[in-house]
Amino acid sequence: MSENNRKTIASPVPGKVAEVKTKPGDQVKRGDLLLIVEAMKMYNRVLTPYDGVVREVAVSAGQKVNTSDPLVVIEV
C-alpha cells in the first residue's frame, strides 16, 4: 500500500475543534461529516472529499487549529 493513497484533510479555517465525528477505521463516503471546527463563532462542518477509510484523527475536541493543520488522514 503506497503513501499516495493516503489523503490528509487539513483545517480550512483557524479555530477550535468543536466535535470529532469520526474515528480510525471508519468507512467514509464523499460528503460525510468528519468533524466540526468552530471559527468566528460559527460551527464549520468539515466533510470528506474522498471515499475511503479513516486511518488517523490528528486532533481532539477542544484543540486549537490553524489553517492547513492536518485533521484527518484517509486511505482512499
Binding site: 479555517v13 460528503g31 468566528m40 460559527m42 472529499p49
Partner: peptide, 22 residues
C-alpha cells in the same frame, strides 16, 4: 464579523468544501 459570516454561509450552500470566512 456578521457580513463575513453571511458570505461564508451562502458560499457553503453551493460548495460544502468552500470555506470563505477568512
Amino acid at each position: 464579523p456578521m457580513a463575513a459570516r453571511v458570505s461564508h454561509t451562502v458560499g457553503i450552500e453551493d460548495n460544502p468544501y468552500n470555506f470563505l470566512i477568512m
